[in-house]
Nucleic acid binder design. Structure first.
Length: 977
RNA sequence: GCUGAAGUGGUGGAAUUGGUAGACACGUUGGACUUAAAAUCCAAUGUCCAUUAGGACGUACGGGUUCAAGUCCCGUCUUCAGUACCA
């Protein structure tokens, strides 16, 4: 202790109000917004409405990383912008809080999913709050809240009580169907329903028992209980919808999925296939996303054709898109699972057919998908009759025909379909050519264009369109076919054998499902002691002791009271994740205070209509975004809402990727690590010798090999240099890590942000180090919203420095610099240029470019030494949607008592941008050589004269005479020759 | 295979209707300030040739249209996403 005994006193103690103290400022304004309910939306306003919505998050245990808020920041900027533009903005947020991860966690730890979900929501809320979003939190929804899922159950009952009338082209109450049955039977009913419906008269109907009637109605309801082949995931112990399966394995967890027959609730979304398709033309979504939905719906127009089977009463129906090729049919193929296979197979073929069916049944969906090339099939021995030529057609079975599409049978036209062609070649079946002048010796001719039909009786000489029409007409005359449109879209399985989801408002009497009266909702999720299926294989709700419905008291009662007369068992399945998210956007419309008794009031629904701008990931294209559209159409048909589509404009934000960091580890000496630079030198033949020597000296290995090792991105600075001590302290295995070099430059690679790659960046750290405004600006600055782009924390200093510079434009060492000085021409030009660009950018959702525009504006105004309030005040409004905290702080320092969020967006005045002269680029043969400043109003010929006389032009031409001189006034001069 | 999106410096990206390619940042290099460091400020920075002046080449690749092409047209390649025996 010698000279350091005195207390260190800084030369200059910084005044906190003079420097950009972002932590204090941001806290201050977040508190202010919360206390003053600045962003609370009102359901009554003279202003036009605007509804900006984010896809609400599933609150996972891991919390947010910097990729998550990207879309929220974009939508927040837009919402704030719309407020400045005089709109009454609804910008709510909530949680999709039912779901698998919480349940998987509950299975492992025994903790109630409600408890962990609550904790996760707290974390999410804290993380979201510190980014400074302008959410109206008073309208928050949580799908796992009984007050919310009461209405999810209510909608389910509405679906159960609806049928789809193809004549009126909308859903109607089931009572209208019952009336029709009672008065006319079902012959005149044109409904979306199951295929296996037998016709009955009014008399039949009236004589049916109520149970028989219920059974029939189930085949018409928009949600129905049916034994269907489902995607069963044994690892998750539940069924999955088609959109929850990716490449044959479960989307969550990647577990195998098998086909299994189970009795399940299904949603008759197929009834809406056409409207879901047509509706896409009315919404402002990207073509990419519309295409995904179009493909998923998979409309194909063609005909159904009935083939009589020789020697049987059976008829095989097929669907074809090419009725014009009917004379090219040389065989038929049925899916192995087709119901007629066993009936029509001849005795001789029985053994082969059964063996084949057994073999294909064993193959999983995934094997079948992976192995498309192998051709397999068996002849059934049976023949069908060609509807026109009456020729016998051999009937085969083959697994290239899918039981789940169309009728599970095809009329094979080998000359016009490559699969049929390959099958015919493989089994040596005839390939008749029905196309005029087309060579089919190598492959089928599948095109519909530029072809005329031949060898086809009455179709000869016709092109595709006319031939199809005529073929359908002739089939109709025979009563053996008709025009038909087919959709790939399947009904959606709605039951999940899980705990953490909405319970169904359903109990069973003699195996028939009964709806609980809407007055008694919600049916609250019961407690269970374990979240696993029961020993009998029933879903977790099978473990609940109090899970029976008392029809007298209308309450849930203990199971041991079940008497099957007044007290019945309740449904054990729960609803899937997409149930709650299919209508939550309506719930936000209602003020939280008025939510009792309505899912949203008529007035609220009328006022807010639907979402004007929806931002979220494209991974929901075939799930949430399709199911919501379906439910909205149902609610519209039944008169509960006024809109046909939920989301007018939709933007998919791109994913933010991580920038992983690596060092190279020497495999022969696992404690030795080298940098990317040394590794590169080692690979390079010119520098190899030197590098090898250095490595040899430490490792003793002449021919070392290396492997890449991830290092935590938080140990790497902006120059890609590794902090060696942090690395050594990171994990025990690196404690004694040896580095040959003083400076370790890491290898960087872009990968998905994930814990296992050690490239996850937590927004909490960014906010603490640079502030929320910097985070917001940087996320936008990274690149176009829709694009995938890598995150690299190093770059954030750019926007952070910008904010500091901006602060200095307003606040100097002696306090606020802003005064009433008259703005200069340049000041006004900078401001109005900025207004124009920022407004255009926001309206085009080009947020990245407006951040650069702000930088340019601040750079220019700083250079101009601008202190004029007339300039600097509107500039704050421009920037406030992006960086709201600093904008609020400076706004208040300028003397405003109201939040900047309601300030009017500045008006662009083009007169400030009018230039008197233009710096013309003078190019020669298209190449710019120099610029020349000329008056804006100089006429064309005058420009040409001036340019041609210029010394640089003469030097460029070097004595040549130009062939042509192009002058575009205000733009460019190009001299050719 | 089909459908869609994209390919621009060392890096993220800009160029909205064909008209100065690389705005704005990051990084790098040099300088100022400092005992030193940090912070801040200034300058340079597409590649190659050239002492300078200047020049050549440059937006995945090959053609084309045009006075002029990152942008329009034809063909090819690559990457990403969706979908996949859909009759």
């Amino acid at each position: 202790m010698c000279c350091n005994t005195f207390k260190f006193v800084p030369y200059f103690k910084e005044n906190k109000t003079m420097t950009y103290d972002f932590n204090t400022i941001e806290k201050k304004w977040q508190d202010y917004w919360s206390k003053n309910q600045t962003f609370k939306a009102s359901n009554t306003s003279d202003k036009p409405k605007y509804y900006v919505l984010d896809m609400f998050p599933y609150p996972s245990g891991a919390g947010l990383h910097v990729g998550h808020p990207l879309g929220y920041i974009a939508s927040d900027i837009y919402a704030r912008y719309k407020r400045h533009k005089g709109f009454n903005v609804l910008h709510p947020q909530g949680y999709d809080s039912f779901g698998l991860p919480a349940e998987q966690y509950a299975i492992q730890t025994g903790q109630h999913p409600a408890v962990t979900t609550e904790a996760n929501i707290k974390t999410y809320r804290r993380q979201l709050d510190q980014i400074g979003f302008s959410f109206d939190w008073s309208r928050e929804v949580r799908t796992s809240n009984p007050e919310y899922y009461k209405w999810t159950q209510w909608i389910f009952i509405q679906l159960f009580e609806s049928w789809y009338n193809n004549d009126s082209n909308k859903a109607e109450h089931i009572d209208t169907l019952v009336e029709k049955f009672a008065s006319e039977g079902n012959a005149t009913v044109n409904a979306a329903c199951d295929d296996d419906i037998e016709s009955f008269s009014a008399e039949d109907w009236n004589n049916y028992s109520s149970e028989q009637q219920q059974e029939i109605l189930l085949k018409y309801r928009l949600t129905y209980l049916a034994e269907t082949e489902v995607n069963w995931c044994p690892a998750l112990g539940t069924v999955l919808a088609n959109d929850e399966i990716v490449n044959g394995v479960s989307e969550r967890g990647g577990h195998p999925v098998v086909r299994k027959k189970m009795t399940q609730w299904s949603m008759r979304i197929s009834a809406y296939a056409e409207r879901l398709l047509q509706g896409l033309d009315t919404v402002d979504w990207t073509d990419a996303l519309k295409d995904i939905q179009k493909n998923w719906i998979g409309k194909s127009v063609g005909a159904s054709v009935s083939f009589n089977v020789n020697g049987h009463d059976d008829i095989i129906d097929v669907f074809t898109t090419r009725p014009d090729t009917i004379f090219g049919v040389s065989f038929m193929t049925l899916a192995p699972e087709h119901e007629l296979v066993s009936q029509i197979t001849t005795a001789e073929q029985k053994e082969a057919v059964e063996a084949y069916i057994e073999k294909t049944a064993k193959r999983s969906e995934r094997d079948r998908m992976a192995d498309v090339k192998t051709i397999s099939g068996v002849f059934t021995g049976a023949y069908a009759e060609h509807p026109f030529s009456k020729e016998p057609i051999p009937i085969w079975i083959g697994d290239y025909v899918l039981a789940s599409y169309g009728t599970g049978a095809v009329m094979a036209v080998p000359c016009g379909d490559q699969r049929d062609y390959d099958f015919a070649k493989h089994f040596d079946i005839a390939i008749p050519n029905i196309f005029e002048g087309v060579d089919i010796s190598e492959e089928a001719y599948a095109s519909k264009d530029n072809v005329k039909i031949a060898n086809s009786d009455f179709l000869n000489g016709l092109a595709y369109k006319k031939a199809s029409k005529l073929a359908i007409y002739q089939l109709e005359q025979l009563g053996q076919g008709e025009g038909k449109t087919n959709y790939r879209l399947r009904d959606a399985v709605f039951s999940r054998q899980r705990y953490w989801g909405e319970p169904f408002p359903v109990y069973y009497v003699n195996g028939m499902p009964q709806m609980i009266d809407k007055a008694h909702l919600p049916i609250v999720l019961p407690e269970v002691e374990k979240y696993l299926p029961t020993e009998e294989g029933e879903p977790p709700l099978g473990r609940a002791d109090v899970w029976a419905w008392d029809t007298e008291s209308n309450t849930v009662v203990s199971n041991d009271k079940i008497n099957h007369t007044t007290i019945h068992p309740l449904e054990l399945n729960t609803m899937p994740g997409w149930a709650g998210s299919s209508w939550y956007f309506f719930r936000y419309m209602e003020d939280a205070a008025n939510r009792d008794g309505v899912f949203a009031s008529e007035d609220a629904l009328k006022y807010w209509e639907n979402v004007d701008l929806y931002i979220g990931g494209s991974e929901h294209a075939t799930g949430h975004l399709l199911y919501s559209r379906f439910w909205v159409k149902l609610l519209k048909d039944r008169g509960f809402v006024n809109v046909e589509e939920p989301f007018k404009k939709l933007i998919n934000q791109g994913m933010i990727l991580g920038t992983s960091a690596f060092v190279y580890r020497v495999n022969e000496r696992r404690d030795v690590f080298i940098s990317k630079d040394l590794f590169d030198a080692f690979l390079n033949s010119q520098t190899n010798e030197e590098a090898s020597k250095r490595i040899l000296a430490v490792t003793g290995t002449e021919t070392p090999t290396f492997s890449k090792v991830h290092v935590d991105v938080n140990f790497v600075n902006a120059s890609d240099e590794l902090d060696i001590s942090k690395f050594r302290n990171w994990r025990a295995e690196f404690k004694h890590a040896k580095f040959i070099e003083d400076k370790i430059i890491v290898l960087r690679e872009v990968e998905k942000m994930s814990k296992s790659k050690y490239n996850v960046v937590n927004p909490d750290n960014i906010v603490a180090d640079y502030g929320a405004d910097s985070l917001r600006l940087y996320e936008m600055f990274l690149g176009p919203l829709e694009q995938y782009k890598p995150w690299n924390t190093a770059g954030i200093t750019g926007v952070h420095n910008f904010l500091k510079k901006m602060w200095k434009l307003y606040v100097g060492e002696n306090g606020l610099k802003v005064n009433d000085a008259e703005p200069t021409k340049d000041n006004l030009k900078t401001l109005h240029k900025t207004i124009k660009k920022v407004q255009e950018d926001i309206e085009n959702f080009s947020f990245n470019t407006s951040v650069s525009t702000f930088m340019i504006a601040v750079n220019e105004l700083t250079a101009q030494k601008c202190t004029s309030k007339e300039i600097l005040e509107p500039l704050l409004v421009l920037i406030s949607p992006y960086a709201p905290h600093i904008a609020e702080e400076l706004w208040s320092q300028l003397g405003h008592n109201e939040s900047i969020s309601t300030a009017v967006f500045p008006t662009f005045d083009a007169s400030h941008l009018v230039e008197s002269s233009k710096k013309y680029p003078i190019s020669f043969n298209g190449k710019m050589r120099f610029t020349l400043e000329l008056p804006m109003d100089m006429p064309k010929d005058e420009i040409e004269k001036t340019v041609m006389a210029h010394e640089k032009t003469i030097a460029q031409l070097d004595g040549r005479t130009p062939k042509k001189v192009i002058v575009v006034p205000g733009k460019i001069v190009n001299i050719v020759g």
